[in-house]
Every structure is written in structure tokens, then in C-alpha cells.
Design a protein around this nucleic acid. Sequence first.
DNA 1: TTGAATTTACGAAACAATTCGTATATGTTT
DNA 2: AAACATATACGAATTGTTTCGTAAATTCAA
Lengths: 143, 143
Amino acid sequence: MFALSFTKAFVLKTKIILRMSFKPTDSELEILQILWESGPSKVRFVNDKLNEAREVGYTTTLKIMQIMAEKNLVTRNTDSRTHIYSAAVDETEARRNLLNKFVDTTFRGSAMSLVMQALGNHDASTEELDEIKNLIKKLEDKE
Amino acid sequence: MFALSFTKAFVLKTKIILRMSFKPTDSELEILQILWESGPSKVRFVNDKLNEAREVGYTTTLKIMQIMAEKNLVTRNTDSRTHIYSAAVDETEARRNLLNKFVDTTFRGSAMSLVMQALGNHDASTEELDEIKNLIKKLEDKE
DNA sequence: TTGAATTTACGAAACAATTCGTATATGTTT
DNA sequence: AAACATATACGAATTGTTTCGTAAATTCAA
């Protein structure tokens, strides 16, 4: 028998290299949303934003963002004392990824039943419906 | 200062009574999908199904289903020795719930941008597009 | 320059999800 | 009946996330 052992950091990096599933936790996604929306930010800023919705300690936010840096979900500039964090994953890319996964797990792979249900659940404005109709026209023309 | 303590089971039940967010884990959702698709089933059956996709031990599946019973995600008939499990949550209801949450966390609440992206990502057949167009007509008429 | 505030770093505790070994009970087969 | 297979129950190990206390470094202000 052999026993191989790896450091936590190595395992983390390996997972990323192998592109093993982009799967942020809820907290991580919350933080990514803030970084996507507001651009590169200090921990203090992100923590304040989070606290608009729910109570979170400063060091909690810090810790999570440090772990996100390890996972390469964010990058950070450590030139000055207060580090500046930036999202390291593209928002559109991340959304596509999460959407595909969600369709698979919750709608058994049927994107269309998701679309139908999303349309049915929410009140759409005339403009929004027009926008969708335009997209559908474009899709029809492609064939 | 006061300190109150509760049993795990009590906290679990309280969460359910308060309807604190339907939030199955990935494994739990996987199992619910099987129960929704195949109806009331034995652990053995569910475990076999799971093992078509990935390797899971029998007792692992059993344990998760027992916990799901505690959470009232499933009910079980214990009349005969081999218990029969049934989904205790409605599939459509669960989907709506999960979809709303997903729109909030991943698309910042915009169901329409989700619809647009879902339509863009996947190849839709003419029939499917027609179906969506019909739904849009219905929605437009409602106003 | 001394003290207060802010920040990062580190580690440990609390909690939840997953996994599995093992004990025990109940059927089944020979 | 004995041996075997199958099922549930239970508990413990493992892993990952979240939370926070505390120390050390740095900045800022009196």
C-alpha cells in the first residue's frame, strides 16, 4: 500500500487546474455579485454592502475573501496595506456555468421548461416581451 | 445572560414549521428527482439509480434519505421491513421555489435576463420557439 | 511620540453534509 | 436449523463553510 498526501493548497490548485466545476458557495457568490457590480473593492466596502442585507462580522468577510483568493475566485492587490480585491471570474461566463448546472439539476436538462416557467412566474413588461420576441426571431432566422 | 439550548431535531422541525427556505442539498435534490420521476421507491432502487451516475455506498444513500425524512422532504412507509420513501414536496412547487432563489442570487432578480440567456445558450427547436411565442401572446393578452 | 483605530493573519470552534463501518434485525435458501 | 443475504439504525470520521477571537502590523490623530 502507498499513501500519498498533499497540502490543502495543492489540492485546491489542482481542482482549479482540472477545472473541476465552478461551484461557489452562497457567501462567495454574494461577494462576487458585489465585486461584479462595484468593481475592485476593499474588504471594508464589501463587508458594509453585505451588512445592508444581513449581519456579518468584518473578519468573517475577510476570511471568506482570503479563501476565495486561494481558490482563485478573486485576485487581490497587496501593494498598499488595505488590499484591493477583484473578481477573477467573468460574470457572464459564471452565469452561463451556473445556469447550465441549474437546468440540469432542477429542470432535468430542459432549458425550455425553465424558460416557460420563468416567463409564467414573473410579470413581464411589454418591452421585455418584445425583447424576447426579437431574440426568438433572430433564432428562427438562423435555421 | 441567558443561554437557551435546543436539540438538533427541534431546530430542524422549527425550521420546517417556520418554512425557512426550501434548500435541499445537491444530494437531496438528486434523490427528490428520482422520487418525482419514479414515484415511491425503496432505498435500494434509489441507490441503484444514483450509481448509474456516480458511485455511492448503500448506507450513504440510506442515511441521507433518513435525514430527508427528519426534514420532512420525504415521507416513508415503514409497514414492511423495506421502507418505501415518497417525495413530500411537490415538484412544480419546488421548482418555482428554486427558480426564484436562483434568479435572485445569480441574475440579481431579473427573470428576463435569465430567460434571454437560457434562450441564447441552448438550441431551441421550431416547436419549442412556437410554444414560447404562444405563451408570450397569452401574457400580452392578459394586460 | 504615544495611543486609538484599522487592517491582515492565524487558528480554533461550531455546524452541516457526506461517507462508511458495524451492530442488529429480518427474511431466504439449502 | 444453519448459513447467507438484505435492511435499518447508529455513531464516528472526514471534509468544507462560516464565524469569530486575538495577535501583530500599520496608519492616523492628538
